[in-house]
């Protein structure tokens, strides 16, 4: 029982997360404190979930793309485009529902472009999505006219900052999406299709699978997730910054996915692991502020923890370490 738990792909990111929380609580005992303020929950763990919800959402879409053996570098730029679209729609007096649909559609369309380039034209995923990563920010800037667009809309802000029955809305929304996605991919054959295509595209095609269509679908889903993340990004601060929002977000998302036990080579994915990975990276960011680490050196401890968790994920290193342990144990006996 315990053995199967340590073998679980979510075990090591969970260990990293617990270690981080213990360290933070040791330095600042109030780290885990949650209080009730103005009728909603208030505290650092709530912040981590609320502010981490955007990375969770990107990681959700990214997991499926990585499962097919691809990667999507353009999600950060899609966030910027979707944010600009939201701001323009709301400023133009459109309804909130239509605005969200538009953001999702823009994200999905961006994903369709990526998917077509990868699956139909056969461009390497890194190169194909790099195109939109670079060009997308230009598109966002063009939409926004080089300005930070301000959005004042109560319902829109509620999506990122609101509370439902004392609980923050954004993590509820993203958590719900995770559950739905998990059910859809695991209760139907879609998950199997994704893994088959990621594992061996040629073989799955010979087995009668529409491999290209499965891949495109994964990119469209990832793009739509990025579109929704763009909604949350703009809603969070009530402004769409085409230049800065979603900057380096693709890297955080990829890290969350990989640390959560999904293989970058494709063919295996763990949605819960990606969720945990996203929480881990957000906790890491908040830890730097909580521990008072100077921003000039903050990237170093961050990098160290990432390297550490990645190493622990490696089977070969774990076996080697386990070998050292048993040999050492025999020596003293």
């Amino acid at each position: 029982m315990s053995r199967s738990f340590t073998r679980s792909p979510v075990f090591w990111p969970a260990v990293g997360l617990i270690a981080l929380v213990v360290l933070n609580t040791a330095v600042n005992p109030a780290f885990l404190k949650i209080t009730l303020l103005d009728g909603h929950l208030f505290g650092t763990p709530i912040d981590i979930l609320t502010q981490g919800s955007r990375t969770m959402l990107l990681a959700l879409g990214m997991t499926l793309v990585i499962a097919t053996g691809g990667v999507d570098l353009s999600v950060g730029s899609v966030v910027a485009i979707a944010g600009a679209v939201c701001a323009l729609m709301l400023q133009g007096g459109h309804s909130l529902a239509l605005t969200i649909v538009a953001a999702l559609a823009v994200g999905g369309a961006a994903g369709a472009v990526n998917g077509t380039l990868v699956a139909r034209i056969g461009i390497q995923p890194i190169v194909a999505t790099l195109i939109l990563m670079v060009a997308g920010r230009g598109v966002a800037q063009l939409l926004a006219g080089g300005q930070v667009l301000i959005v004042k809309h109560a319902g829109f802000g509620y999506l990122a900052n609101g509370f439902f029955l004392t609980l923050p809305v954004a993590p509820l929304l993203v958590g719900g999406l995770f559950v739905v996605t998990q059910l859809v991919v695991r209760r139907t054959a879609i998950g199997l299709f994704l893994e088959a295509v990621g594992d061996n595209e040629t073989a799955s095609r010979f087995a009668g699978l529409a491999a290209a269509r499965v891949k495109i679908l994964a990119y469209v889903f990832c793009g739509a997730c990025a579109g929704l993340a763009g909604v949350l990004w703009a809603a969070n601060v009530g402004a769409a910054d085409a230049n800065r929002s979603g900057e380096n977000a693709e890297l955080d998302a990829i890290f969350a996915v990989v640390v959560g036990g999904t293989a970058l080579t494709g063919g295996r994915f763990v949605l819960a692991g990606s969720l945990l990975g996203a929480v881990l990276i957000q906790t890491l960011t908040i830890s730097m502020y909580n521990l008072g680490i100077s921003p000039a050196v903050a990237p170093v401890p961050k990098a160290l923890l990432i390297v550490g968790v990645s190493l622990l994920q490696s089977d070969r290193l774990r076996r080697w370490l386990a070998g050292l342990w048993t040999r050492g144990g025999k020596g003293t006996a």
Partner: peptide, 9 residues
């Protein structure tokens, strides 16, 4: 995000 964290600290 930074201000949220510092307010709690």
């Amino acid at each position: 995000v930074v201000m949220e964290a510092l307010l709690k600290k």
